[in-house]
Measured scan of single mutants.
Amino acid sequence: NKASVVANQLIPINTALTLIMMKAEVVTPMGIPAEEIPKLVGMQVNRAVPLGTTLMPDKVKNYE
């Protein structure tokens, strides 16, 4: 099972992601793969992401 990116804290809307905000966890359904964490640093979320929520591609601005 592959790990996904999960919010390590509440991430407010329009916040630029940092390493400390994210952790890798095996979750269902799968979100953004954990190996993409370095790519996500500096990207902004387009909505608030509660603690423990899986980061889905549609929650990150300009994620492809």
Rank of each mutant, 00 (worst) to 15 (best):
M22V: 04
A16I: 14
N1K: 13
N8A: 15
L19F: 12
S4I: 03
S4K: 01
V60Q: 02
V60P: 02
L17S: 00
T28S: 14
Y63H: 02
P33E: 05
N8C: 11
T28N: 12
E35P: 07
S4T: 04
Q44A: 08
G31M: 03
V41E: 03
A48V: 12
K2G: 15
K61C: 11
A3P: 12
L17K: 00
I20K: 14
G52V: 02
T15H: 03
N46F: 08
P50H: 08
L17Y: 01
K23R: 15
Q44P: 01
A24L: 07
G31Y: 03
K23W: 08
A34I: 04
K61L: 11
I32R: 06
I13P: 11
G42P: 03
P12M: 07
G42R: 03
L55P: 03
A48E: 14
M43K: 11
A16F: 15
V5H: 04
V6M: 04
M56A: 06
P50N: 07
V41N: 00
Y63E: 01
N62I: 02
E36Q: 11
Q44E: 13
N46Q: 07
N46H: 08
V45L: 08
L19K: 09
K39M: 13
S4E: 00
N14V: 06
V6R: 01
M21E: 01
N46A: 11
D58K: 04
M56S: 14
A7T: 06
T54E: 03
S4M: 03
E64S: 14
A3V: 05
A3D: 04
P57M: 05
I13V: 13
A24F: 06
I11N: 04
Q9L: 10
P29N: 04
G42Y: 04
Y63G: 01
A7Y: 06
M43G: 00
E25Q: 14
N14Q: 02
P50V: 06
L10S: 12
A7C: 06
R47N: 11
G52N: 09
K59P: 01
A48D: 14
G42I: 07
M22D: 02
E35H: 13
A34K: 02
M43N: 01
Y63T: 03
M56R: 05
P57N: 00
L51D: 11
A3W: 09
N62D: 13
K23P: 04
N1W: 15
T28E: 13
A16T: 13
V27A: 06
I32M: 04
D58V: 03
L51M: 15
I32E: 00
K59D: 15
I20S: 13
V41L: 09
I11F: 04
N46D: 07
I13C: 14
P38T: 10
L10V: 07
G31N: 02
L10H: 15
A7N: 02
P29G: 03
T15Y: 07
N8V: 11
V5K: 01
L51Q: 15
L19R: 11
L17A: 00
T54C: 07
I13G: 06
M30W: 10
N8F: 08
V27T: 09
N1H: 14
V45Y: 00
E36F: 12
K39H: 13
A34Y: 05
V60E: 03
V45I: 05
G52W: 05
E36C: 14
V45D: 04
A16N: 11
I13D: 08
G42F: 08
P29F: 09
L40Y: 02
L40E: 00
E35Q: 11
P33C: 12
V45C: 05
T15E: 06
V45P: 06
L55I: 13
M43P: 00
M21N: 10
G52Y: 04
V5W: 06
A3I: 03
V49D: 05
E36I: 07
A48H: 11
G31V: 02
P50A: 11
A7W: 06
V41C: 08
E25I: 10
V41P: 01
E64C: 15
G52F: 04
A3Y: 10
L51G: 09
N46Y: 09
M22E: 03
A7I: 05
Q9I: 11
K23Q: 06
E36P: 01
K39L: 12
K59H: 15
P38G: 09
S4Q: 03
M43S: 04
M21F: 05
E35I: 13
V60R: 02
A34S: 10
A34E: 05
L40Q: 01
K23C: 09
T54Q: 01
G42N: 04
P12S: 07
P57H: 06
P33V: 04
G31C: 06
I32L: 04
K23G: 09
